[in-house]
Design a protein around this nucleic acid. Structure first.
Length: 589
RNA sequence: GCCGAGGUAGCUCAAUGGUAGAGCAAUAGUUUUGUAAACUAUAGGUUGGAGGUUCGAUCCCUCUCCUCGGCUCCA
């Protein structure tokens, strides 16, 4: 069906056809959906008489190998739309018939009355598919040992939950066995880095069953990471003239009726809580509270821009099936801020924010990202003129920073256009974190104002922005990015001191005290274990520095340093080591 | 929410229609260790929860909660 024309995609898409052919062999009554390539492979959707089980995959792989061996040609044919309709109707392929119908519709819209319309079909053995191509010439071009079926999943026909759910088989194919193996290894590596697994192994957080879905608790070590990020974040914001504020976790339902969230965002809100005679909601957003702070006084144009920042915890209903570790939860803390400014200040503020975001992400080791500018969606508030103006301001700001970006049409929020930054982690996977949204809806609804130079009341523009997104998601991503081996400044435990024997305990405590004086997070491992065991534990816990101390170190006032990833560095004078680690903890900006 | 797979000790996993076992971790003792796992012993479980079938359920059935792979959605 859909196709990018590079060699690997053609190979993969052709493999998906062969998979379909193998499925047809297994289930003669199978109905076919679509079988496009996706990042890393391909899939094909089927409507089958029974549910597939994992054991079916090796059987299908065998069948695919048999087809490859036969070296069947991919025969391309242009046929009349009408004929194609009949062909697939006769073959009892309702999904294909539907696709042809839509193809015709599409063409009419663009080419009016295009006539003599043809569609392309491809035939491989007994399997005929509606497909634009291109394909490889024959099945023999696929290497028997360079493809693999990966998993079975449910997927709605044409991606809509109103439609029937089909069974999807994911697979991948490569030009040779080596590439396939490298790919599978990468998947394995991703699994090893999974923040849910590392969260358990490194004792960072957990999702207690009794707490309910998507509600994590932070263990002491995870809390250190979070606290360190929060402290850094607050300091940076204060330095950039943001004012830190706090707001409550619930609020009167009238706030959200006024803001429009009750109407536009209902499916993400939790049911109201009755308190006395009023109804309250768990807050899904921090913005109204920041508006209240703004409105606590009459504001002058001289006060603007006014920037309020808060690590604000919000609660949003997420469907049970989408919850995922720390990256998709039901209660999360946004590193939120709202900026009130005049229309003239908008562009400059946006530039400041984009630069701030990029700088912030860099501190955490993310320097590769994709930037998206999302424009007006179908469901929106306000008039088109003001949308255009805001979109232009965002574009202007992006152009001024010189960063590359793409337009994501129709993906804006209901109250305004936005810029999203998706960071790429160590495995090149994209994660959305930063979001910058221009809002002209809330100032209007809450009648937010300032007094201009002429003493006249004006409406400010409001910018919503989160740089890290949410602390939960961001730390989840960080864990995967660093594979749990946090840089020294973030590591929950920065140094372990390992006395060789019990007579070295006293010196170990002395060293620990010296490090603690410098606010270094240090643990003395006094357990009755061999040094080998302690080192193993330290490595598994990804501790940046393991300091072995014994007789030699005591007499030399030194420590034997083992650095994570570098092994034994040998003895270093204690003062020198302290200097080294202090230097390393300074966040490099 | 939907399709599918699961839930057994803190962790990783085993077993059975007759109320469960290993390794690691924990605890105690022995050992005093020089760069990735010392030795011995002890303790640890309403088999996610509720109901049902059965003489008897961890196992079979129903419901529910949670987790996992996807779909859809998203910070």
């Amino acid at each position: 069906m859909e196709n990018k024309n590079n060699k690997l995609d053609i190979l993969r898409h052709s493999t998906s056809h062969i998979l379909a052919s193998a499925v047809l062999d297994m289930f003669p009554e199978a109905k076919f959906g679509i079988g496009p390539t996706v990042e890393g492979g391909f899939y094909y959707d089927f409507d089958l008489p029974r549910t597939l089980i994992p054991e079916d995959l090796p059987i299908l792989e065998e069948k695919i190998r048999a087809i490859i061996k036969q070296n069947l040609a991919f025969e391309k044919k242009q046929i009349d739309v009408k004929k194609a309709q009949e062909l697939f109707k006769k073959a009892k392929q309702p999904y294909k018939v539907e696709l042809i119908k839509d193809l015709v519709k599409e063409e009419k819209a663009t080419l009016r009355q295009a006539q003599g319309k043809k569609v392309t079909i491809y035939k491989t053995g007994n399997f005929v598919d509606l497909c634009r191509g291109p394909h490889i010439d024959s099945t023999g071009e696929i290497k028997s040992d360079a493809f693999k079926l990966l998993k079975i999943a449910g997927a709605y026909w044409r991606g809509s939950e109103k439609n029937k759910m089909l069974q999807r088989i994911y697979g991948t194919a490569f030009e040779n066995k080596k590439d396939l193996e490298a790919y599978l290894k990468k998947l394995e590596e991703a699994e090893k880095r999974d923040h849910r697994k590392l969260g358990k192994d490194l004792d960072l957080f957990s999702l207690p069953e009794l707490a309910g879905g998507g509600l994590p608790v932070w263990h002491p070590k995870g809390a250190v990471v979070r606290q360190t990020i929060e402290d850094f974040w607050k300091k940076e914001h204060q330095a950039k003239d943001y004012k830190l504020v706090y707001s409550p976790h619930i609020g009167n339902i009238n706030i959200w009726k006024k803001s429009g969230h009750w109407d536009f965002y209902r499916e993400n809100l939790y049911s109201p809580i009755k308190i006395d005679t009023e109804e309250y909601l768990l807050k899904p957003m921090n913005c109204p509270f920041h508006i209240f702070v703004y409105q606590s006084q009459t504001r002058s144009y001289k006060d603007l821009p006014l920037r309020y920042a808060e690590l604000g915890t919000v609660y949003r209903y997420e469907r049970s099936g989408v919850l995922h570790g720390l990256t998709r939860v039901r209660g999360f803390t946004q590193d939120d801020a709202h900026i009130f400014c005049t229309p003239e200040q908008l562009s400059e503020e946006l530039v400041r924010i984009i630069e701030f975001a990029v700088k912030m992400l860099k501190v955490f080791g993310f320097s590769d990202y994709d930037i998206f500018l999302s424009t007006r969606p179908e469901k929106f508030i306000g008039n088109e003129k003001i949308w255009d103006k805001a979109t232009k301001a965002l574009k202007y700001a992006l152009d001024k920073t010189g960063l590359k970006y793409q337009i994501d049409p129709g993906e804006g929020v209901f109250y305004g256009p936005k810029i999203d930054i998706k960071i790429k982690d160590a495995l090149d996977r994209a994660w959305q974190c930063t979001t910058i949204q221009v809002d002209f809806n809330l100032p209007e609804r809450f009648d937010v104002s300032y007094i201009d130079e002429k003493g006249k009341k004006q409406q400010p523009i409001m910018i919503h922005r989160a740089l890290l997104g949410s602390l939960e998601r961001f730390i989840g991503v960080l864990i995967e990015h660093y594979a749990g081996a946090f840089p020294v400044w973030l590591a929950p435990e920065q140094v372990w001191i390992l006395p060789i024997g019990s007579r070295h305990k006293e010196y170990a405590l002395k060293v620990a005290e010296a490090l603690k004086q410098q606010n270094i997070r240090v643990v003395v491992k006094n357990e009755n274990e061999t040094i080998g065991k302690k080192i193993r534990d330290g490595e598994l816990q990804k501790i940046p520095y393991l300091l072995v101390v014994g007789d030699k170190e005591i007499s030399a006032e030194s420590v034997a340093v083992r650095e994570r990833g570098k092994g034994d560095l040998g003895p270093i004078k204690l003062d020198k080591f302290i200097e080294k680690i202090i230097d390393e903890i300074k966040i490099k900006k």
